[in-house]
Design a protein around this nucleic acid. Sequence first.
RNA 1: GCGGAAGUGGUGAAAUGGCAAACACACCAGCCUUAGGAGCUGGCGCCCAAAAGGCUUGCGGGUUCAAGUCCCGCCUUCCGCACCA
Length: 888
Amino acid sequence: MADEKENRYDPAAIEQKWQERWAADPKLYAAEPATSSKPKYYVLEMLPYPSGQLHMGHVRNYAIGDALARQMWMRGYNVLHPMGWDAFGLPAENAALKNHTPPREWTLRNIADMKRQFERLGMGFDWATEVTTCLPDYYRWNQWFFLRMYERGLAYRKKSKVNWCPECATVLANEQVIDGCCWRHEDTKVEQRDLVQWFFRITAYAQELLDDLDKLDGWPEKVRTMQRNWIGRSEGTEVDFFLEEINQGIGNREQGTERQGSGIRDQGSEKQGTGEQGNKGAEKQGPRDQGTRGTAKTRIRVFTTRVDTIFGATSVQLAPEHPLVTEFCAADSALKHQIDGLIEEQRKAREAGDLGAIEKHGIPTGKFAINPYNGQEVPIWVANYVLMEYGTGAIMSVPAHDERDFEFANKYGIEIRRVIKPVEEFEGCETLPFISEDGVLVNSGEYDGMSCAEAQRRLQKAAETGGFGEAKVIFRLKDWGVSRQRYWGTPIPMINCERDGLVAVPDDQLPVLLPEKIEITQQGGSPLARVPEFVNTTCPKCGGPAKRETDTMDTFVDSSWYFYRYTDAKNAKAPFDPAIVKYWFPIDQYIGGVEHAILHLIYSRFWTKVMYDLGLVKNDEPVQRLFTQGMVIKDGAKMSKSKGNVVSPDDMVARYGADSARMYSLFAAPPDRDLDWQEDGVAGVSRFLGRVWRIVTRHSEMARGGAPRSGALDETGGNTNKGTQLLRKLHQTIAKVSLDFEGRWHFNTDVAAIMELVNEMQAADAQFAAGEIPAPVVRELLRSLVLLLAPFAPFLAAELWEELGGEGAVLRASWPKSDPGLAKEDEIEIPVQINGKLVTVVRVAAGADSKAIEVAALANEKVRERVAGKSVAKVIVVPGRAVNLVVK
RNA sequence: GCGGAAGUGGUGAAAUGGCAAACACACCAGCCUUAGGAGCUGGCGCCCAAAAGGCUUGCGGGUUCAAGUCCCGCCUUCCGCACCA
């Protein structure tokens, strides 16, 4: 009975043994240099934030990537499978506040803890290329890139309305605001504030980011759609409505423009600035200022996608924050009071996240504007459904052909004038608003009778000729605000000199080091501003006294290019060697959560395109194939502390071992679907691994001694029948698992297939024990089983590979090849249907042709009973699949 | 409102248009035992006492010799976007 005990699967002992061995062999998971003759494969999982604790989502993410990496190693690829730490960010500052631990210390300790967890899980990462974003040898290159962007006008500063998270006490990018709340603090409402901020001109790449989505056919369609919507390209027309006081306006023109140069109006130039194709921010002022003939004082520029309806415009609607409104208010305190109320209401709604839910209402300004096409005067209103952030902040209102305008006009009794009629009259076509573009113009002067599309072209042309408008493409995407009023981030490498103004830190003075000695407090504003040794410096130009920029960069900067650094992580002279990057890029397979579909993945694409234009990389997209795994949930809900349904990986590993935890996370659901964590399931996988352990160890001696099977099956001798059956199952399993790794990735069915194989082997245990299975077959079965398991259960596979006398590391063993001859069945069952209904099955030879199958089916007893007295009108045979008799 | 994904046993799930429920969990019965979170054998969609038989992939239509799978309409859930002019 001591035997029994010895023969017990003991994951704790096995895993400890191999963890130690692997730790002592850092070369095991190291990539070969870019000169390697092997084909390269770059598999990457998104790097974690070092919170100090891995969660089940991580286990799943890295189990998927590690399985792929291991299989590619076994297939002889030069695999790059790196790992790093997204190590800047707010939690470190919060921890500092709470425990008086410096952020750096806290972060590095967490990294050490998580690294241990990774090693305990047996993840095959090459730690030699580890990237830690909070260390100066990494973030100095953030600064370096920032300067390259600044030189090209891609990094710029402006005052703007920003999203402010009171919890983080910092600014958030639009992408980081979710339902009006902070992406890190789901219950914290984001406020609006005015601040001078640094931006990256991602809008300069809007068209390219959109167009190149078409190339990313290895990405989930869902992610591509989300990015397309986020970029939000819209084709239309900008048209100037003339102001009544046109003559008064001209006198103030120059003054007016200048006064607004850096204020709210600058916002306008930002969103328009780079909307045009090909303009990659060479001009720091957007082209809009050139494009606008006249100023806000003489004209109101509106954007519309339906210029064909312009003869139906019965009012002009301005956003409450529109500069012209401010101007109107200056002379009219009653109006100002009303507008302030409107802005306040909107602000509240925005903070509550239900901007779309508030009722439409507006305020008449008492002023009028002139439609440039027909000279008609229309009233100017201020409406709460017009957004300053989109388009020009002003619209023409066409109630007859727009739902929102219709609702608004009805409420306030504004004229509704129909200008589009359907091409063909149909029931209900008289109902307004009529939104369709499938129509012809009426009540539109010389344009009457034209199709909507043609009218749009003609009207655009007329606007261009007349100098009161132009065709225009606008994007919803806005520039990326990167300033954060935080300590624990990359310092922005800029200096303000009293004499020279804004001066970039020269390359040779990088990195701008984050000061170590700092007291983290809860006061608002940039913590760095309270560190005189940091702030006070000398101007690189004149040597005079100057002050450093005290904001730090958004941490999404770090993650926008980290995967390039992995290829050349120790480079002290450059972010990376372009030649090495050229070998490894693009990333063959990137794996992570879908929650990064927009933020991280659009910033990364932008960064790559900038690097491409800088001549640093040859690839214009970073990622060839993207895989988004599902969430790990428990009891139907996302794991969270507040719900008390968190399962700790450490706990699972302690109870069942890393192999079981990993394999369960692959077995319980296909990787792209959400996974419901059921502990009984982990126990089940653990029992399965125990069966594998027993089968292999019980018969390993026989396998170890033997030579490889050579040639034909009848050489195997002994119980050829059983051996043949098992080999067939084996080779079928190899074929299935191998195929799945090619891209389908239904690892859950692969694990199931391996379980079937093991079940069949277990059923033949008596024959194994009796020595009826020839040694070469036993050897092949056991070795191949272990190899098949190696990507999923690396510890057990390593142990059993050694037990079987395998040469070298199992990771270096060749992935088994399926022999189609062995995998083939001799005889198969064919379902027989009568009139599409299953009646029975018949056994036929595997290669049987249609005729043979038909004969077999008609000869079947059950079939004859049912066909008796009727006639068989038709026989459909799908060889190898089914036979269907149409009987009348 | 727009866009996307999904809906199959008690549960997680499987199924190139060709035997629905593989594999596992839970449960039931039995065996074994130095009683373990162990091992082995068998059962397990629903209806019917059982067999025979019938029914079954959210609902309703359709295409097809044949539909969980394709098409049309609807319902539900989840995700993303949302007054985007």
